[in-house]
C-alpha cells in the first residue's frame, strides 16, 4: 500500500475543489439567468406565466435536490443521449438555483412600498417604466445580501453531485478516504475547505445586510 503524506491528501482535495468552484459559478450564474426570466414571469401581468413560475418554484423547493439530480441524470438519458455527470449536475443545479433566486427576488420586489407604484403611476409611467426606473433599482439593492447568502447554498449543493459521479471536492474526499483509510482526517479537511469557501460569503452577506438596515433606519 502506498503511503500518503498530509500534503498529498490536501493537494488532491484542493485540485478537486477547483471543480466545486467551477460548478458553483456555473450554477449560480445560470440560475441567476433563468431566475431573472422566471422572476419577470412571476411578477408580470400575464396570469398563465405567473402561475407557471409559481408552480415551478414550489416544485423545485418542495423536492430534494438529490432527486432532481437523479431525474436530470436519468431523464436526459431517456432522451437518448449518454449524459455525462457534469451535464446533469449543471442542468439540475441551474434549475434548482433559479427556483430559489426567483423566490428571494420576488420577496424583494414585493417589499417595495405600494406608494412607489402609486406615485410613479400618477406621473404617467407605464408598467415597464415603473419596473425599470422605480421598482427594480430599489429591489436590486435590498436583494444583494440574501443573494450573496444563497451562493453559500449553491456551493453546498454541489456536494450532492458527487452522488451521480461528478468528481468534485466531496467525491475526492470519498476517493481519498478509500485509499488512506483515514476518514476522520479526510472528511475533516473536506469540511474545512468547504468552510473556507462558504464562510467569507456568509459573513459578507451578514455585513451587507447590517449596512442596509442602518441605511434604512436613516429614512
Amino acid at each position: 500500500m502506498i503511503e500518503f503524506s498530509l500534503w498529498d491528501i490536501v493537494r488532491n482535495l484542493l485540485l478537486a475543489a477547483r471543480w466545486t468552484v467551477v460548478l458553483s459559478l456555473v450554477s449560480f450564474m445560470g440560475g441567476a439567468l433563468v431566475g431573472t426570466l422566471l422572476l419577470f414571469m412571476r411578477i408580470g401581468r400575464r396570469r398563465v406565466l405567473g402561475l407557471f413560475a409559481k408552480y415551478y418554484v414550489e416544485l423545485f423547493q418542495g423536492t430534494p435536490l438529490l432527486m432532481q439530480l437523479f431525474l436530470a441524470f436519468f431523464g436526459l438519458g431517456l432522451v437518448g443521449i449518454d449524459v455525462p455527470a457534469w451535464l446533469a449536475a449543471g442542468v439540475a443545479l441551474i434549475l434548482w438555483s433559479a427556483a430559489f433566486l426567483t423566490e428571494i427576488w420576488r420577496g424583494c420586489v414585493e417589499a417595495i412600498a405600494k406608494g412607489q407604484w402609486e406615485a410613479s403611476s400618477s406621473l404617467g409611467m407605464g408598467y415597464v417604466q415603473q419596473m425599470r426606473y422605480v421598482i427594480l433599482p430599489q429591489a436590486m439593492k435590498i436583494a444583494i445580501p440574501p443573494t450573496v447568502g444563497f451562493s453559500v447554498q449553491v456551493i453546498k449543493g454541489t456536494a450532492l453531485t458527487s452522488i451521480i459521479g461528478f468528481v468534485e471536492l466531496s467525491k475526492a474526499g470519498t476517493v481519498v478516504t478509500n485509499a488512506t483509510f483515514q476518514p476522520f482526517m479526510v472528511y475533516g479537511l473536506v469540511a474545512l475547505i468547504y468552510f473556507a469557501l462558504c464562510w467569507p460569503l456568509s459573513k459578507s452577506s451578514q455585513v451587507l445586510e447590517r449596512k442596509l438596515n442602518v441605511a434604512h433606519r436613516n429614512h
Binding site: K156, P183, F195
Partner: peptide
C-alpha cells in the same frame, strides 16, 4: 458557523465514517 458553512453530506460522512475512529 461550522455547520451552516459545510454541506450536510460531509457532516453525515464525518459522523458515520469519521467518528468511529474515535
Amino acid at each position: 458557523e461550522l455547520i451552516r458553512n459545510t454541506p450536510f453530506l460531509i457532516q453525515l460522512f464525518f459522523i458515520f465514517f469519521g467518528l468511529p475512529s474515535l
